[in-house]
Design a binder for these strands. Structure first.
Lengths: 339, 339
DNA sequence: TTGAAAGCGCTAACAG
DNA sequence: CTGTTAGCGCTTTCAA
């Protein structure tokens, strides 16, 4: 059927070992034979069989991305799709491919075993929502390369992870609002059981402190992430004595709730209330006024996760790395007072 | 390292051929030896090496999903994520895994070659936005199993595809509006270069005809899919002489534009204007009134695509199938007049 | 119903 | 620098 290394060897008048060497571009080869073999390979339209290589090397040229089917919202969809694209881009450059393995949480142990034992993956990328000590120990015991997407802290054991620099995002949001003349800044976010919300809060606090801005306990509101809770929270804030004149929201949905509250109370955005949202999706450019957002580069997060994993694959004893991706303020209407 | 077929054979006192037979549960085997071998396999925690099997069989136990990176909107994101999940679910049941291969359109030919030759996939799933005669001919020439996601008609050559029954969706939208007392129904959709928009239009027309409802040419509006164009279109409709009292939108974004126009013109939804949207995401439950939607089960589309592909893998000469997934009306506020 | 043995296509000592 | 050769783990004739 397809042409194999043996036929190339014969046609080029060399041994299969030599052909193998040019495939893997081994350094110890004369330029002359290398060129000759390459030429024949091209002519005969040779493609190495990744299965045979895999069998020889004891590894498939694949890495897996575990996806958490149960939590489509935390890693919400367009978000994850972008991450995946980033990963795919990076691994493809190395001739590897990305396989998707979905898990419902309870079965993750099994699935990971399957990926390691049967499918012989080279490495695996795990969202932090699926990572836990038990799973990671299984991986570590086997010296199996993995990286976590989303900050993961688990005692003293080092783990490679990549995350968005949410603290920086929180700081940027505050700094941007201050620059635009707002000084009484509230924060409405999702559950504090999520590390990224804690990080954003931390950034928020730091920035306020650094700029010597007031900070009120009731300006920090934790919600379940729904539009309705954001709405109620904002309404309460606007009715309170120490009413803020700006607010930072954890995502577009929360912002939507805030906008509804403002509208009802006839508080004008951005004139009376500045608004900065995390995320650019799905509403940022759709609503009026459009939302100034803390943009999160999830594509890059995927790329970096993949590169980190590739490094571990190349050298399983390489040190674990923790990487943060910078956020950026995307300025739109909701935070700029028209003059 | 891991235990191999040879060790199982030795431990069970049989040959490797026999072990292989139980792995593939070949019929010609005494129950007794089968049980014995199975027991040993369990005890020794044996897992077959998919690479070695692949090499022997000349195929990797993988199928690929091509994704079109250039067109994140046509197959818009959460949509595609669900499709992928459906595919993964179906192939996993068969012990296969799903690999993701992204393409920017120009390079799809190469990528598909790579998947066939080097990665030795068993089959491939292609979004219709990436499918064209040239690519499919390449696949056909190699007798390589593939299915297209999204209706694909290309002359007389049969192709397996699965799609949402968009025509049915259009009909359902009309029927639902009529049932709720609206009789002057407009349609605002995206570009008519997309087959799904044509199908919806077709359904719309048929339903109107069947119910003997009026139909005006200017009630059918093609847009670029932006909120703004929907807004302008709706405004024009509301100002026109033969103003409709209901409208069907191609997606949530268009609906958002329509809602803005209605609000500005002080036309109340659903009282004065009924609204039905395609898709449930991202705004359907968020806006007020919430959007009655034509729900599209993309998870199922993924599953069916995968099953169709598996059938072709099992028997490459199986007949090509075309499958349509039913849509359903999800009733919310925007189309029900409060009494 | 089972076993022996020859591959599948590639890699990696080892020898030269 | 290059060739010989023995696997990698499984499948599959062919014989028994």
């Amino acid at each position: 059927m397809a042409v194999s290394i043996k036929e190339i060897a014969k046609a080029a008048g060399v041994s299969t070992a030599t052909v193998s060497r040019v495939i893997n571009n081994s350094p110890k080869l004369s330029q002359k034979t290398r060129d000759k073999v390459l030429k024949i390979m091209k002519e005969m339209n040779y493609v190495p069989n990744s299965l045979a290589r895999g069998l020889s090397n004891q590894k498939a040229l694949n890495v897996a991305l575990l996806i958490n089917i149960e939590e489509p919202s935390s890693f919400h969809n367009p978000f994850f799709y972008e991450v995946m694209h980033g990963i795919e881009t990076a691994v493809y450059k190395r001739g590897l491919s990305l396989i998707i393995a979905s898990s419902r949480g309870e079965d993750k142990q099994e699935i990971v075993e399957w990926l390691m034992n049967e499918k012989r993956m080279q490495g695996i990328i795990i969202p932090s929502s699926l990572a836990d000590g038990k799973l990671l120990n299984l991986l570590r015991k086997r010296k199996f390369p993995f990286v976590v997407i989303g900050k993961f802290e688990e005692g003293i054991k080092p783990v490679s992870w990549v995350d968005i620099n949410n603290q920086q995002g929180g700081e940027q949001a505050v700094a941007h609002l201050i620059q635009n003349g707002y000084e009484r800044i509230a924060l409405i976010c999702g559950g504090m059981d999520k590390v990224f919300n804690l990080d954003r809060l931390e950034g928020y606090k730091r920035a306020l402190a650094r700029h010597q801005m007031p900070m009120e306990p009731n300006w920090i509101v934790e919600t379940d992430g729904s539009k309705n809770q954001a709405y109620s929270a904002m309404k309460a804030l606007l009715q309170s004595d120490n009413c803020p004149n700006a607010v930072i929201c954890g995502d577009n949905i929360l912002s939507f709730g805030v906008m509804k509250a403002a509208q009802e109370m006839e508080v004008s955005i951005p004139k009376d209330l500045g608004l900065v949202s995390f995320d650019n999706y799905p509403l940022a450019t759709l609503v009026e006024p459009s939302l100034t957002s803390i943009h999160i580069d999830v594509f890059q997060m995927g790329e970096m996760a993949a590169n980190s994993l590739l490094a571990l694959i190349d050298n399983p004893d390489a040190s674990q790395q923790q990487m943060l991706i910078s956020t950026a303020v995307e300025v739109r209407e909701s935070s700029i007072r028209r003059t």
